[in-house]
């Protein structure tokens, strides 16, 4: 089955992973800007990273027939440095018209601190000013519940933002209902140990249905599995779910959400450039 991974960090993966993803049915990915495993020291470090996301990775992906899209921001972990964050936020508009840039992300909270909240709000303002969709990272482990609620409070507090253009990622059993009930998109991250297994994701799909729900691998430089979505497809098939339900979660929903971006020009497998979905 063709599928889309809406959250994967391919800058951290080897080329063989692109080949494996292609063989497993991946036709497109979106790559949010994130923490590289170390704190970068300057805005120019982020400028180079944004060039990697907008120029290098699309070519690497295209070599395997995968369309590459991305999101730009300074992530929550480095947002503790407010002055650096403001320099990066001021630079982001230079890249917003680059092909494949879908919006602002993955912004969010990490340890739910004051500085993280300040920088999150400034990212929201940037997204509103430039009419950009938003992809949101929610915190890990014991900070997730509190942080997700704080994020929703801040989103709800900005009347300029449309909820149908915002994806709240890394939802789990204790946060998914609040996100969906308030009208946002929700993403389940299939990640060893710290987030959600394919089996638990399948449970949440059965419980909440496919409306505004997606799944991703968040494959990155840490313990993670870039082919986690095929694992979810396998689990849903094993339980006897219709192919139409599975396709909606792993293919149609990402497309529907990404269409919120003016830079989303997707070519389904087999279609020519002239037939492109815009």
């Amino acid at each position: 089955m063709d599928y889309i991974d809406p959250h994967i960090h391919m800058v951290s993966r080897i080329t063989d992973d692109y080949a494996t993803l292609a063989r497993m049915g991946c036709v497109a990915i979106s790559e949010p800007a994130f923490w590289a495993g170390f704190d970068r020291g300057s805005a120019d470090g982020f400028r180079d990273y944004f060039r990697q996301l907008t120029e290098v990775e699309p070519k690497r992906a295209a070599a395997y027939g995968i369309q590459h899209f991305c999101w730009l921001c300074i992530n929550a972990k480095e947002a503790e440095n407010v002055s650096l964050s403001r320099e990066v936020i001021a630079m982001i508009p230079e890249f917003l018209d680059a092909p494949g840039v879908l919006g602002i992300g993955e912004i969010g909270l990490n340890k739910n601190t004051r500085n993280e909240a300040i920088v999150f709000l400034e990212h929201l303002d940037l997204a509103a000013q430039y009419d950009q969709p938003i992809l949101i990272h929610t915190p890990h482990l014991e900070d997730k519940y509190q942080g997700t609620r704080m994020i929703l409070d801040m989103l709800d507090g900005d009347s300029r933002l449309q909820r149908s253009r915002i994806l709240v990622d890394h939802v789990e059993e204790h946060t998914i209902a609040e996100v969906l009930d308030r009208g946002y998109w929700a993403g389940m991250t299939l990640y060893p140990v710290t987030k959600c297994t394919p089996e638990r994701a399948a449970d949440m799909i059965e419980k909440y249905g496919p409306e505004r729900l997606m799944a991703n691998s968040a494959g990155d430089w840490g313990p993670s599995k870039p082919t986690a979505i095929p694992d979810l497809i396998f689990e849903l098939r094993r339980r006897g779910h219709d192919e139409s339900l599975i396709r909606r979660i792993v293919y149609e929903n990402p497309i529907e959400f990404f269409k919120n971006s003016r830079n989303f020009h997707f070519r389904p497998r087999g279609e020519t450039v002239a037939d492109s979905v815009v």
């Binding site: 601190t113 300040i118 014991e142 509190q146 789990e172 059993e173 449970d203």
Partner: peptide, 26 residues
């Protein structure tokens, strides 16, 4: 009501404080 998995997730979570904006002066 939300199931055992949700109950465990909340058990392992910090509580949500509605007045967090006041606490952080945001």
């Amino acid at each position: 009501p939300g199931g055992r998995a949700e109950a465990l997730q909340k058990l392992f979570s910090r509580p949500y404080d509605q007045r967090w904006r006041d606490s952080l002066s945001v």
